[in-house]
């Protein structure tokens, strides 16, 4: 028969960190389980498991701070979608969460899991990247978490740079300025619900009344083996006035900046052209709306 499996369900962060610091076991973390339990091999072979949903701070906490919000990594998507402050200030994140799987998945799945699973198709990842999120990793060293950018954590499809026994504790989102803000999250999949992205695009930016782009952040998912921000395309747009010619140039730039893959869900040519076209679509729509 199989080896025994040890499960720990710490009630709070202190307990959690204690478990991790006290002995030399290699722990598997589970939160919503919506990715982990699909990977039957990983799940069946785990010998030491920590349930993060029992850790109150990680599972329950959405803390509104003066200039940012701190979300427990094991807070289910549904709670994020319904949270009034997040709804008000981070609609792009709500939109990404709403497009993940089904209601059943949203009721269990978590942002921490989305990051740890490191799928290029993880729907919150480009959004977190565009929001300039910080990811806080435990266990705490001298009382402080280790900080990372979401894009720094992902090493490749299904691979993270998390060290053994390091867990994702919180995601911190700096509060974006509201004035002149525009945003879009586009997810392209084979069907309209329950889809795995062929490509996704997150755009967050600020523009003045004269259509000058003060700042724009562009991130893509599913296009390449990892989530990416596109600094060159962003630089091309920053400080410029939004025009049709600029949009065409930006789309061309994005096309050159991405390195799409071919897999079961789509091919590289489609991904390259369509990602650029979706950016075009977002910007043209913005232009149409502003010109109204």
């Amino acid at each position: 028969m199989k080896d025994e499996i040890i499960v720990r369900r710490p009630q709070n962060l202190t307990e959690l960190d204690q478990i991790l610091l006290e002995n030399g076991n290699s722990w598997t973390f589970v939160a919503g389980g919506t990715d982990l339990l699909v990977q039957k091999q990983v799940w069946q072979r785990a010998t030491h498991v920590i349930d993060l949903t029992s850790v109150t701070e990680l599972h329950q906490q959405v803390e509104v701070l003066p200039d940012k919000v701190r979300i427990g990594a094991a807070v289910p998507y549904t709670k994020i979608i319904k949270h009034p402050f997040i709804k008000e200030n981070f609609p792009i994140l709500c939109e990404a969460c709403r497009q993940i799987g089904s209601i059943q998945i949203q009721n269990r799945g978590t942002i921490g899991g989305n990051i740890a699973n490191a799928s290029p198709a993880g729907d919150t990842l480009p959004v977190l990247s565009a929001l300039d999120a910080e990811v806080l990793l435990g266990p705490r060293q001298n009382g402080t978490f280790t900080h990372f950018k979401p894009s720094e954590i992902m090493a490749g499809p299904g691979q993270t740079r998390l060290k053994q026994n390091q867990y994702i504790a919180f995601v911190e989102l700096p509060l974006p300025a509201k004035e002149g803000q525009f945003w879009a999250f586009r997810k392209i999949g084979q069907r309209q619900a329950m889809a795995i992205s062929k490509l996704s695009l997150a755009v967050l930016g600020w523009m003045d009344d004269l259509l000058t782009i003060k700042e724009i952040r562009i991130a893509t998912g599913s296009v390449a083996p990892v989530i990416q921000r596109h600094a060159k395309t962003e630089a091309l747009l920053n400080g410029q006035t939004l025009t049709e010619a600029l949009i065409e140039k930006a789309a061309e730039a994005l096309k050159n900046e991405i390195s799409p893959i071919s897999d079961i869900r789509s091919n590289a040519t489609y991904r390259r052209e369509t990602t650029a076209n979706v950016l075009k679509d977002v910007l043209y729509e913005l232009l149409m709306e502003k010109k109204k």
Binding site: R191, Q192, A193, A195, I196
Partner: peptide, 11 residues
């Protein structure tokens, strides 16, 4: 079912 796609209610 992850890669064999059938229509859902929304489709």
């Amino acid at each position: 079912f992850v890669d064999y796609i059938i229509p859902t209610t929304v489709d």
